[in-house]
Amino acid sequence: MKNVLVVAAIGLAVPVFGATLTVESGAYWVQVPLPSINRFFGLANQTIRFVNERLEGNVPTLGTATTALGLRVGEGYGDTWKLGFHLVLAQLENGTSGSWRQGEQEFPVRLGVGVGLSALELEFALWLVPELIQVGVFGGVGLAQVRYTGQFPQNLPTDWTLPFTPPVGDEVYAARSWVGGLFARLFLPVRLGVAVGAEVGVRFARLGVPIGPSSVLDLNRDGLGDVLDFTALWLGLVVKLSFPL
């Protein structure tokens, strides 16, 4: 039932025009649809509800994973232009556990999905209005990991048969792809060298179908593979510290 996505970005800037060192940090609301993962959650929940209605015991359903909280920390050099790079980390966890009983027999259920993203990105930023409005683009390489843990009775302890049951086993899948995006930041100077602001950005991170040691990610069991898409809208609050050099 936990939907936690923590995104951390650490930027290390490269001096280009060498005038001002800025250190930024921000908290973000991130919308990550993850359609293929959420389709799996939907299928698993329907199965869980179906069995919950017919057996003793209870297995809580899984929540959807569509929104997240993020964190970003960065620094850079420059006045009009800024050049730097970011290390982006993201993590999403969702799971449930419980058990069903039929007579003396118990059927434990444990499902867990962890999705992680890390990306190394180069960033270009520009002050449209000095110290007030900044826009920029970034791009780099992203690596995603999906950890799946599944314990689920494959033969349901009812007289019904379902064509879908969550896969059984522990597996780690990985995918790598180019990622990138753009952002706009609006700052409000608070005191000399200190500003707070808001940011809106889009990160394009369609990572494809993660591959495991023995198979591709196919939690839906439809034979097509589950595409992992981290493309998301970021809305955040940013704090910036500036140090003239």
Partner: peptide, 21 residues
Amino acid sequence: LGGCTPKYQPTPPEALFALRP
């Protein structure tokens, strides 16, 4: 780049059923 923003694509329905027996 803004023009590359992913367009909204509706998710297809999911067929799921149970059989007895």
